[in-house]
């Protein structure tokens, strides 16, 4: 197919407004790059506190992505394949963190897992304390990232349909075998997209972590929290670290959406 610029029948003014919209996103990001103190960039992003934040962010984001896959695949399968009363409400509830302000998520997590929380108070008597721990960071990240994985996997499952699964089961495969040998390979691209999006969301988590987990170097202070704190005294370091996150985000977008455009 030949790629050629056309307006495709839309009015010219729509294209102009669209350009304004695109610039609204692009200009700030390009401007950020102009603020970077390039000669000291290396030193700024490799300071001990930056590295501690980066390592913690990667560790927790990998853990929460794994948790998202573990919990999200069954969830997406249930939402895509089964039918039961209240399913629409369940889906709406699961996707709620997508539209919820993260700080609200943090307060909700506190209400559940905090020391005086619904579950937290029982956990506390068992000697398990979640608040102010790395576990709290992973929980906060999973809370906000899980809907991304569920959403893209559910879409992939619906698009794939259940014909192959039906054939496999008439040939005598058990539900577990069908899931492992037919369903999962079919929706693998959707699962990868969902996992990458969930990872990116986890990496960027700020509000819920700040509210729920606290901020301590190496334990709960992830990269976004470090950027927020550095801004107080060392704006150059904050900008440099911000750019690191932008680069990660760009890579994520290329990985998830780039392939499809090229084809």
């Amino acid at each position: 197919m030949q790629q050629r610029s056309t307006l495709g029948g839309i009015p010219a003014w729509v294209a102009v407004v669209a350009a304004v919209g695109a610039l609204l996103i692009i200009v700030p990001i390009v401007s950020l790059a102009t603020r970077v103190d390039w000669p000291n960039f290396g030193a700024l992003v490799t300071s001990p506190s930056s590295l501690a934040a980066l390592a913690l962010s990667l560790r927790t984001s990998v853990a929460s992505t794994a948790l998202c896959i573990l919990l999200g695949v069954p969830l997406a399968l249930v939402l895509a394949r089964t039918s039961f009363p209240g399913k629409r409400i369940l889906r709406a509830l699961i996707l709620l963190p997508l539209v919820l302000p993260p700080v609200v998520g943090g307060i909700a997590l506190l209400a559940a897992f905090g020391r005086r929380g619904l579950l937290g108070s029982s956990l506390e008597t068992l000697g398990v304390s979640i608040a102010f721990s790395t576990v709290a960071v992973v929980l906060a990240q999973t809370f906000v990232a899980l809907p991304f994985l569920v959403l893209s996997l559910e879409a992939a499952l619906r698009a794939a349909g259940s014909r192959y699964e039906a054939v496999a089961s008439t040939l005598g495969a058990s539900p577990s075998t069908v899931f492992r040998r037919v369903t999962l390979p079919l929706v693998l691209p959707g699962l990868v997209t969902g996992a990458v999006l969930a990872f990116a969301r986890a990496l960027g988590e700020f509000g819920a972590t700040l509210t729920f987990a606290g901020s301590l170097e190496g334990v709960t202070r992830t990269l976004p929290l470090e950027i927020y704190l550095q801004r107080e005294t060392d704006p150059d370091a904050a900008v440099a670290l911000a750019l690191v996150l932008v680069v990660v985000a760009v890579i994520v977008m290329v990985v998830t959406y780039g392939r499809r455009e090229i084809r």
Binding site: V17, A18, V20, G21, A22, L24, I25
Partner: peptide
């Protein structure tokens, strides 16, 4: 995109 642009304006 157009909607976002309009909000921005």
């Amino acid at each position: 995109l157009a909607l976002v642009g309009a909000i921005g304006m």
